[in-house]
Design a protein around this nucleic acid. Structure first.
Lengths: 222, 222
DNA sequence: CTTACATTCCAACAATCATTAGATTGTTTT
DNA sequence: AAAACAATCTAATGATTGTTGGAATGTAAG
């Protein structure tokens, strides 16, 4: 059949992307890269894996063309090939959460499940943040905040949170977010804040989820 | 690090879906199942592969919970677990097309690339079909049309097209669509119609692409 | 009950993939 | 030029996957 000779290469090409998404390590790399450019060293450290292994996985992602890289001196900086790649990660995770009960169980068990803000309140949250009724804090590292953050969010990296508590108003609700539903930074921040008497909640979204919902992001001007 | 013991299972679960998307055969199965329920036999025939192999791939898809099945007599009917799975396939294919030049080349070479209607005209097309200015034909098998089709589309399966040419008005533009960008039915239909003096064009969309664009579908009442 | 048939299970093989260790390539610093 | 360092390449391993053939299961029809 002549059709097969035309069709097979098409599905094979798409499967290249599928193969890139077939490893938990590579998915974690994608999620990190969705926060901004990183070096191999940074990524390997974040995943707690060998540098060579991180390099090999990045090579696989680059072969599927969903990550790109540039060299800057001794370092090579990796990034996602486009915003559509971050969206794909969000969609893939959504499908997994919808259909895999095991994932929902694991998510629930993750951080003792503090009160979490869900999807429906995004616009309301934005309005409250705009009016100053609540304070939204981004607890990721500063460079990730600079790359892109939620509108009206203030950068307060988890590592500095305890030392900079004085910056937070005691009389307002605080909403913390980080890299997304799989990231525990915001959970930790909420625990710490709650222990210190603040009213704090976690927002499930990271910047990719926020953008996937069609809402705008902000970035630090340079 | 205690974080790893929590995080690893999360990415592993999502990677289950990724693994399911890592094979060209399984992707083709997903696209077919997006058109409606099928038996193993039908799927194996469509892919021109062994029945056992089709069964094995379906088992892999079922293990990732993105397809489900039911038994009816001697047959087992497979279906997608939800509309989000078809959407994921569309997004995955879009990312592949955006970032893989090889796929764009293969797509272009596929059917001699007849004049193809692109994304931006969807609403306009719908309006023209509604007003009767053009005729939209669904050249997929009848049962797929019954499951879901574009609004105002008329079923005219490719296999019956030649015999039923009289049903088409000679003075109107005809737009043919099939299972999506990877399907050649509409290309073949356009070739045949053009050869017979009709003004015919292909619509790239299938029902999943149409739905992913946020537009409504219709289905045959039973 | 036997036969026919759709599908799955099991075993085997080759091919591919993840991971690790050691050697190598570029680039910067001294 | 030499030393230091980031990253990749090569080779080897064990594990996983795709595919095929043969046997087994479940259901419907004779």
């Amino acid at each position: 059949m002549t059709t097969r000779t035309f069709k097979d290469p098409l599905y094979e090409q798409v499967a290249r992307i599928g193969k890139a998404l077939a490893s938990p390590r590579r998915l974690e790399l994608l999620e990190l890269l969705a926060q901004g450019e990183k070096t191999v060293e940074m990524l390997a450290a974040a995943l707690a894996i060998d540098l060579k292994l991180a390099s090999a996985h990045l090579k696989a992602l680059a072969a599927a063309r969903i990550v790109a890289s540039r060299r800057d001196g001794k370092y090579r900086w990796y990034r996602l090939s486009g915003p559509d790649v971050a969206q794909l990660w969000v969609r893939l995770r959504d499908v997994a959460e919808t259909h895999l009960a095991e994932l929902r169980v694991a998510l629930h068990a993750m951080a003792g499940a503090p009160e979490t803000l869900v999807a429906t309140v995004r616009e309301a949250l934005l309005a409250q943040a705009r009016s100053g009724a609540i304070v939204v804090i981004d607890v990721r590292p500063r460079d990730e905040y600079d790359t892109a953050h939620l509108p009206f969010a203030r950068s307060l990296p988890l590592a500095e949170l305890e030392a900079r508590l004085a910056e937070l108003p005691a009389d307002k609700d605080i909403v913390a977010y980080c890299r997304g539903p799989f990231c525990v930074f915001a959970d930790t921040a909420v625990q710490l804040l709650t222990a210190r008497g603040y009213r704090a909640r976690k927002l499930r979204d990271g910047v990719s989820e926020w953008q996937a919902a069609g809402l705008p992001l902000a970035m630090t001007a340079r």
